[in-house]
Design a protein around this nucleic acid. Structure first.
Length: 433
DNA sequence: GTTGATGATTCACT
DNA sequence: AGTGAATCATCAAC
């Protein structure tokens, strides 16, 4: 019966956030029964919190001040600094002196190589572009190059501006942190080395940001490069004139469409009059493509072949009748013999048709060059005559040269080659008849 | 967007 | 080194 009122009481006491009763409980409370005592403790803590006053804060302040003014303070401070330094040193000992990041080095090298980083040449983007445009690089693709340079210098400019910004921000931040640390070093132990370390951390962070910038710049340069300098992207179709020149040579040397270096150069020069990108490599490409495509589908090229055959024939006829020389490039094996330009062309044409006889090209070509002009002309005349008589295209020009001579390297003969070989071959004899 | 033409590149071969 | 063959990438016409 007794218990109940006690419980009730204590309950109400806590429940009422019991200010009135607490001091009393404190006095008797520690030894009190379990539930009762805990509640008293909580009440006690609450009371303590509530009674924290400015006074206690002041007290702490005063203690701190006393400590600061203590005559041993500087010595103690130094000892703390030393201990801290030692621990810091031992911690960072491992990660200090890290080797230069290979990735960063790569980026740096590339930027340097691309002329984005490093000393600026010519001074200014405009100057660089102008130099590129007027530079002795030749007329071939200076326009594109100057465009490329302009864009590159734009990237360069952005890169440097950003870099400068980063550096400025880094310096500002470093100064700020250093000031802050110096400020704090008056109240807590901060060694100069610690400040140094903090600075280096900041620098590292900023350099990682810089690396991102460098990476982006590199990417931009790569894209620019691929856009402007990648030959594939730079592809421009040859203009009509260049194509005609090349085709003329090709079909007039159909039996051996392998221009010598000199011939390539000459063709390149001829084509370069109107086509900027033609140089001897382009000529090689052109002939490579032409050979393979012609061989792959001779039927498709018949008309073209006839056209050029006729044209060459006419040229040859004119040339021989006028005694003047067409300025077509030299033949593969007779380079330099200027006098035989026409002869070589017509002779080659002749051979390419005559190869039905099974003459090997290599031997025959030279012969063809010196073979009597009469023969050539006779062929030419028969050709032109045949053409005017309204012969169909495939009758005009045959691909015999490919299989009959050794000039066309013995590629596996596709079906498309064999079938036309037979057809026009027989027709050709008609033509010569 | 699709397609054919075509210049350039790559790779294997001789 | 030059070439053929395959392939890529772009242009131009539709």
């Amino acid at each position: 019966m007794d218990e109940q009122p006690r419980l009730m009481h204590s309950h109400t006491g806590v429940g009422m956030a019991g200010h009135p009763g607490l001091p009393q409980h404190m006095q008797e409370g520690t030894g009190g029964t379990d539930g009762d005592g805990r509640k008293q403790d909580i009440g006690d803590i609450l009371q303590q919190i509530m009674t924290i006053t400015d006074q206690s804060l002041d007290e702490a302040q005063a203690r701190k001040h006393a400590l600061n003014c203590h005559r041993m303070k500087p010595a103690l401070f130094n000892v703390l600094c030393e201990i801290k330094e030692k621990t810091v040193l031992s911690i960072r000992g491992a990660q200090e002196e890290e080797p230069p990041d290979p990735q960063l080095m790569r980026l740096d090298n590339m930027l340097l190589a691309e002329g984005v980083a490093g000393p600026e040449k010519g001074g200014g983007s405009a100057a660089a572009a102008a130099a590129a445009a007027s530079g002795g690089a030749g007329a071939d693709n200076s326009a594109e190059h100057s465009d490329y340079r302009a864009k590159l210098s734009q990237i360069r400019q952005i890169y440097h501006t950003e870099l400068e910004k980063y550096e400025q921000a880094c310096n500002e931040f470093t100064t700020h942190v250093m000031n802050l640390l110096r400020e704090q070093s008056r109240t807590r132990p901060i060694s100069p080395k610690e400040i140094e370390r903090m600075v280096s951390i900041i620098h590292r962070k900023f350099s990682s940001i810089q690396m991102q910038l460098k990476q982006s710049t590199c990417e931009a340069v790569m894209i620019l490069r691929s856009r402007f300098l990648d030959a594939r992207r730079k592809r421009r179709n040859f203009n009509k004139q260049a194509t005609e020149i090349l085709n003329e040579y090709f079909y007039s040397h159909l039996s051996n469409p392998y221009p010598s270096e000199e011939a390539k150069e000459e063709l390149a020069k001829k084509c370069a009059i109107t086509v900027a990108q033609v140089h001897h490599r382009s000529v090689s490409n052109w002939f490579g493509n032409k050979r393979i495509r012609y061989k792959k589908n001779i039927g498709k090229f018949q008309e073209e072949a006839n056209m050029y055959a006729a044209r060459t024939a006419v040229n040859a006829a004119n040339a021989s009748s006028h005694g003047s020389q067409a300025n077509s490039p030299s033949t593969p094996n007779s380079a330099g013999s200027a006098g035989s330009f026409n002869m070589s062309n017509s002779g080659d044409l002749f051979m390419s048709v005559q190869s039905l006889n099974g003459d090997s090209y290599q031997g025959a070509q030279v012969g063809a060059n010196v073979q009597s002009q009469v023969d050539t002309l006779r062929h030419v005349i028969s050709q032109t005559g045949g053409y005017s008589e309204g012969l169909t295209a495939n009758q005009m020009y045959s691909p015999q040269g490919i299989n009959a001579n050794g000039g066309w390297q013995d590629a596996p003969t596709p079906s498309s080659v064999t079938s036309p070989t037979e057809g026009p071959g027989s027709v050709h004899s008609d033509t010569s008849n």
